[in-house]
Design a protein around this nucleic acid. Structure first.
Length: 823
RNA sequence: GCUCCAGUGGCGGAAUCGGUAGACGCGUCGGACUUAAAAUCCGAUUGGGCGAAUAACUCAGUGCCAGUUCAAGUCUGGCCUGGAGCACCA
């Protein structure tokens, strides 16, 4: 065995061996229980960054640990390979998006292999390949047939920079999630997936996801945004019209003093009088010009104009004016709001500005407010509310809604904030939406036997203001599958998030050319036991995938309805306290780390300094420290190689120092195994590697190298490299074979500990006086409470503190401490 | 504004159940080896007080203020700070 550690040689050698031996192939049929470990698959942007390294290392260690524990582990990798960057590269450099993508995949695959990740490459998928997107299209058609995919004209988010529409989830603070430019509203006819049909289940089933963090679950719950309330209908005085409003505060209905409809409200023109028409038209035109950001800003002063008409409050018979104001949103509820300025802050602001009347209907009996300075929004009792006076407002919500139901002008209503998922994109590099428009028959799905609808290659990427796909001569014109007449293809492609909403299913049966996947195989492998990825997908990808799984479940394609049993959201990789980014120039190139230190050092370091869920601050000194540690382990073993045997026998009777070394090894096995089991605390796992290695190293300085010493040392060293093998994958394999093993260390079973050996024979008894530590005494482990008490009371230091004072009581915690309470 | 998460040395972070706060590492300082450097190895490292620089002793200390308890980093209540998400959602 080489005296020095040369990671570059070792790593290359073993990567080749593992590939040739197909070491990490996962069979579908196995007697072992299954375990599915999955990292969020990457977009092939060109090169791995440290965030990838962290993500894939975490999942890889989990996969290897589970494999060693006796599971048949599925650990696949693939590519989320449709998307705008490939198209942008094509526009800028004239590259072919497919070629650009393939080159990136090739380079990044090489990097993944250099990291020593245990993937079953036979299951690799790439969403941009026809053999994959054929099935994305097929699934779209299944959703279409079920009414879950539909086309409608709607106000949608348009990003001019990207030249396409975006889903609500892709608009962050009014800006495009990808390019950060301001998003505009446009009225366009677009394809949607009916995720709102699943709003309730998506919300309720969050409770089933015990293996997900609360942060992600509450983010999803907030996004879905369920609220309970009522629809109340108000008759218009001047016209034969009715305005329904959604409210969560039916208890305040007697306090309505006006009503607001959104500028885009469907009946707004009919509700406007001739005298007010000009002002209303002006207001609406102005509202259209505002960007989403301006309109949604909470700091903005509320504005509005009266329509000139009135409605009747069916509870009181009172008439109140109708207004339009852009603080009412057309997309939410009914697009109309009943305004109760006394008990709603927004209505209050608006009423103050336009001098609208106010009427108090909820009061705190102990501290009544006239609501002149602020709205009263706390719980209270109803006043000025006729037959409902004196009721608690929470009870009145129900009673008043029931009254409206009984009298035919209201209903109970549950409302969600979630909107349908806009999936069409006016871009080239995506899966074509498989429908055609027939001159006679309208929208027609492409027959399944004609899938995939292939992306055309005769396109001009230099066009501005429209999708390159529309420049293809071959693509657009086609025949109608129903009447055989002329039809044109849909030129929009699908949001890449559609492609990534089912890839984890395809891994179960990646090469199937007959079906998107075999149901039995999907049911065998899914749900994913451990999913690992960034928090940035808390809503986007994770919500869409949950929706897809539920929809596919209802279509009978899978037998489960949640895709990811456990979710680990890893923190970001920072440098100097901020996120690594090219623009800041604080990136670290993984290639350089592999070259200078090797993959094992990179893997060890990326796990060592922070728990996986927390942000990780990269430090060059930290890398250096990990490299030194691996060198130290290597040297300790290489210089003592002649004393190590794989067939060690631990003698029955042994010296105290050897006994302690064995104990330390068992304590390490127990601690490391528990740390991994307990939320994958790899940072403490690694500190325990160091403790064990340091301990063994100290031991060698004292060793006499008797036969007993050699056997005990062998046990300790082999335990150490087995425990380290999921992390330092190449080094441990090299040491293992250098010690004479004929099989891979990655086929070895995980170490087990003996509970009796994992605890020490003596304990440190802590003696406290009034809760403060006064003494520490080494005592025998077997002593009972009375004996411990006696020892503590006899401690000279304790006696000094007691010094004639009265002992009130003595608390004994077995095997730990004695607390003497004195006065 | 609402929701969630976090706050521990110079730094990253440890601390099953409430029971020795600061594991392990980084950095720093000191020492050994060396002609010298690198590498390596050994030691110190929460702060204050009293010491002479050691040892011993002692007080304080886990964002702040209360509370529960024999005992609080850990539990309860109220705040403060930072991060993330949502946000004119009626």
């Amino acid at each position: 065995m080489n005296k020095e550690y040369f990671p570059q040689e070792i790593e290359k050698k073993w990567q080749k061996v593992w590939e040739e031996n197909n070491t990490f192939h996962t069979p579908n049929d196995s007697d072992k229980p299954k375990y599915y470990a999955l990292s969020m698959f990457p977009y092939p942007s060109g090169k791995l960054h440290m965030g990838h390294v962290r993500n894939y290392t975490i999942t890889d260690v989990i996969a290897r640990f589970k494999k060693a524990q006796g599971y048949n582990v599925l650990h696949p990798m693939g590519w989320d390979s449709f998307g705008l960057p490939a198209e942008n590269a094509a526009m800028k450099h004239g590259a072919d998006p497919a070629k650009w993508t393939d080159e990136n995949i090739a380079y990044m695959t090489k990097q993944l292999k250099m990291l020593g990740l245990s993937y079953d490459w036979e299951r690799e998928v790439a969403t941009c390949k026809p053999e994959y997107y054929k099935w994305t299209q097929w699934l779209f058609l299944q959703l279409y047939k079920k009414g879950l995919a539909y086309k409608k004209e709607a106000a949608v988010n348009w990003c001019d920079e990207c030249g396409t529409v975006l889903a609500n989830e892709q608009v962050i603070d009014g800006k495009c999630w990808r390019c950060d430019s301001v998003v505009e509203k446009k009225y366009l006819s677009q394809w949607f997936l009916k995720i709102t049909d699943y709003a309730d289940r998506l919300l309720q089933d969050l409770d089933k996801l015990e293996g997900w963090g609360d942060n992600v679950k509450t983010m999803q719950a907030n996004w879905i945004g369920k609220s309970h309330g009522a629809i109340l209908k108000f008759k218009v005085v001047e016209k034969d019209l009715e305005i329904p409003v959604y409210t969560t505060r039916p208890d305040t209905v007697h306090g309505i003093t006006y009503l607001v409809v959104a500028p885009e409200y469907k009946d707004i023109e009919a509700l406007t009088t001739d005298e007010n028409r000009q002002a209303v038209e002006d207001y609406r035109a102005n509202a259209r010009k505002l960007t989403e950001i301006e309109r949604l800003s909470t700091d903005r002063v509320k504005t509005g104009v009266p329509l000139g008409t009135h409605a009747i409050n069916p509870f009181t018979g009172e008439q109140f004016p109708l207004w339009t104001a852009d603080y009412a949103l057309v997309e939410y509820g009914t697009g109309a709001v009943m305004a109760v300025p006394t008990h709603d802050e927004r209505d209050f602001d608006f009423a103050k500005k336009y001098n609208l009347p106010m009427k108090v209907v909820i009061e705190n009996p102990e501290n009544p407010s006239n609501c002149e300075d602020a709205a009263y929004t706390e719980p209270g009792v109803l006043v000025n509310s006729g037959q409902f006076n004196g009721m608690k407002n929470e009870d009145a919500k129900k009673a008043i809604t029931q009254y409206a139901v009984d009298n035919g002008f209201g209903e109970f209503k549950t409302q969600f904030r979630l909107r349908d998922w806009l999936v069409s994109r006016q871009r080239y590099w995506g899966a074509p939406i498989p429908v055609v428009y027939c001159d006679k028959c309208g929208i027609q799905p492409v027959p399944e036997d004609q899938l995939p609808v292939l992306l055309p290659t005769d396109v001009d990427f230099s066009v501005v203001g429209k999708s390159p796909i529309t420049t293809s001569k071959a693509f657009k014109d086609t025949v109608c599958p129903v009447c055989g007449g002329h039809a044109v293809r849909e030129t929009d492609t699908m949001d890449t998030f559609v492609c990534s909403s089912w890839y984890y299913l395809r891994y179960a049966d990646a090469k199937n050319s007959e079906k998107c996947f075999d149901k039995d195989l999907a049911d065998k492998w899914l749900p994913v036991d451990q999913y690992v990825g960034g928090i940035e997908h808390a809503i986007l990808h994770l919500l869409y995938s949950r929706f897809f799984t539920k929809a596919l479940h209802d279509l009978g394609l899978v037998g489960f309805d949640e895709p990811f049993k456990n979710l680990l959201t890893q923190g970001m990789v920072l440098k100097d306290g901020s996120k690594m980014s090219k623009s800041k120039g604080n990136t670290v190139d993984p290639d350089e780390i592999f070259e200078n230190y090797g993959a094992d050092t990179a893997r060890l370091f990326i796990l060592s300094d922070s728990p996986p869920a927390r942000d990780f601050d990269w430090s060059d000194a930290g890398v250096e420290g990990c490299y030194k540690f691996l060198n130290r382990v290597w040297r300790m073993i290489s210089t003592n190689q002649d004393k190590i045997t794989l067939d060690y026998v631990i003698p029955e009777t042994r010296s105290k120092v050897n006994d302690d070394l064995i104990r330390m090894a068992h304590i390490s096995i127990k601690g490391i195994t528990n740390d991994i089991a307990n939320d994958f605390q790899f940072n403490t796992v690694i500190s325990k590697y160091r403790e064990l290695a340091n301990y063994i190293s100290d031991w060698t300085n004292k060793a006499q190298w008797t036969d007993e010493d050699k056997n005990v040392f062998s046990f300790a060293v082999i335990t150490l490299i087995k425990l380290m093998s999921p992390v330092a994958v190449h080094m441990c394999e090299e040491i293992w074979t250098e010690l004479g093993a004929k099989t891979s260390i990655h086929e070895e079973k995980w170490c087990e500990w003996d509970e009796n050996l994992a605890k020490s024979s003596s304990i440190t008894l802590v003696v406290q006086i009034n809760g403060k530590v006064r003494d520490k005494i080494e005592v025998d482990e077997g002593l009972d409470q009375e004996e411990l008490k006696k020892i503590a009371l006899e401690s000279p230091k304790a006696r000094e503190s007691i010094n004639g004072k009265t002992i009130v009581k003595v608390i004994v915690v077995p095997k730990k401490l004695v607390n003497i309470v004195i006065k």
